[in-house]
């Protein structure tokens, strides 16, 4: 349904404050068209007793969800609301016998169609009415250093994943993390924000030790832009650099073994 209508908004489910994508077509779209990979967090039903290959749903970082909404390609669906009518129950009036009868009916129709050995399947996505949330549900993070650097790198074409494995805010990959190693341990800062120099040593050395570089970056403050023109990244080679990238400045730190 999604493929024939590319303009349709991608549905990002918000459940208990976390962002998920359950629909495989949406997963393909964000990965192929918007280079947002997310993290697979579900058990893969074909090979359930391992944690190397995981399955749906895909969890998105708040920054990923917010960016897709800001770009107008996705909207946030409140799944608790969307499933409200299905899951609703009147505590004082539970008719379990009737429910069991209906379940038997449901299960028998399904097993009949399966022939000899009855089998039961679980759909991945519900076909309920969707309750989209307004953009304001994610826009609170638009003006955070994390979001600034996320957006900056995303616009430059990087794939970005959570940075826990190397103790940073994000990891930046030059291509799809399926095929390529990450290049940067990313730390977004406020422009005037101070950080301990020891962090530079620690992260710089750690990054170099795992064949990556540590990147710090911040969005230039408006009144600083003219004074720091020299720091602005020049137009990127392929001419892809959009205006919004001009107000961002980033540095990479690598630990060189001189001497």
């Amino acid at each position: 349904m999604v493929e024939d209508d590319a303009a349709e908004l991608i549905c990002i489910s918000v459940i208990d404050g976390e962002y998920f994508i359950f629909d495989i077509d949406a997963v393909k779209r964000v990965r192929n068209d918007h280079h947002v990979a997310g993290i697979l967090v579900g058990t893969l039903p074909q090979v359930p007793q391992q944690s190397v290959f995981l399955g749906l749903p895909v969890q998105l970082m708040p920054e990923e969800a917010a960016l897709l909404v800001q770009q107008g390609v996705a909207h946030i669906i409140d799944e608790a609301l969307s499933h409200g009518t299905i899951l609703a129950v009147d505590e004082n009036n539970i008719d379990e016998a009737a429910a069991k009868l209906k379940i038997n009916e449901l299960e028998s129709t399904e097993s009949e169609s399966q022939g000899a050995l009855a089998s039961y399947s679980t759909p991945t996505v519900s076909s309920t009415d969707k309750y989209p949330l307004p953009e304001s549900s994610v826009s609170a993070i638009y003006d955070t250093p994390r979001f600034h650097i996320y957006k900056y790198l995303h616009q430059k074409g990087y794939f970005i994943s959570p940075g826990l494995r190397f103790g940073s805010q994000f990891l930046a990959y030059p291509g799809d993390p399926l095929r390529y190693h990450s290049h940067y341990l990313v730390r977004g800062l406020g422009y005037d924000e101070e950080f301990p120099l020891l962090e530079l040593v620690g992260s710089g050395r750690l990054g170099t030790g795992v064949k990556k570089a540590w990147m710090v970056g911040a969005r230039l403050r408006n009144d600083y832009q003219d004074n720091f023109a020299v720091l602005r990244p020049s137009q990127t080679k392929d001419g892809e650099g959009s205006e919004s990238n001009d107000d961002f400045v980033s540095f990479c730190i690598e630990w060189a073994g001189f001497g």
Partner: peptide, 10 residues
């Protein structure tokens, strides 16, 4: 028959 999505929501 609740879907995986519905199961998460619930």
């Amino acid at each position: 028959n609740i879907s995986l999505q519905g199961c998460y929501a619930a």
